[in-house]
Amino acid sequence: MKKKLAVWKFSSCDGCQLSLLDCEDELLTLADQLEIAYFLEASSRIQPGPYDLSLVEGSVSTPHERRAIQEIRSQSKFLVTIGACATSGGIQALRNFADVRDFLSVVYARPDYIETLDKVSPISQHVKVDFELRGCPINKRQLLEVANAFLNKRRPNIPNHSLCMECKRRGLVCVTVAHGTPCLGPVTQAGCGALCPAYNRGCYGCFGPMETPNTAALAQRLKDHGMSSQEISRVFRTFNAEAPAFKEESLRHEE
């Protein structure tokens, strides 16, 4: 009997779900091992729960989502959140730093039709999450590793250390030390394969804070490199703005 997989979407751009479809070569093998029971991005065929593995993309932004996640949790044996939205609120959590009603009146002709929550929150604030897979978007190799670990009943080999270790193992030259480029690598969790430094760009922190992020020490370094308080606040306020370590650091530099 194959294990049943469900893929759920909350407030998100769908990019992380697409990473699953992006698996291409491995997708058929994955479909051999898992029954894809609910995955609207890929198929309109829906099988009822319960599900053995639920992958949840997106953050909780509306009253409807707040109810839906409870139902999904009760239908899922293992629940894994995928991507920055699900694990830390995502880019839409930027609205947490202001009053959502101010945005509503600017964006929508009839704001009174919009039902939304005051704050955007990660899935883990609402239900128990068995594993969090970071990234904006998630890394395909890491997604397969999570599926793989689930199928082989082992812990996923997903490191929580800094991006720097991945960058150095890849033999890349440090963009901060050698070029003076601001980089969030030292406070960001590995997983993307050091994509930006490989193209001579600093890390933007897509994978969120690493296990023990010393954001204050890095912020001081960014300041030494000539960044203003506003700029420092902004670099910590992107895809993982609501992740506690990044949020606190961005607030410290807010003017």
């Binding site: 800094s162 720097c164 270790m165 150095k168 440090c174 690598g185 406070v187 010393n214 204050a216 020490a217």
Partner: peptide, 12 residues
Amino acid sequence: DRCLTCGNCTMV
């Protein structure tokens, strides 16, 4: 307080 625990020193 200053260390980033990034591991760069050990890698290099």
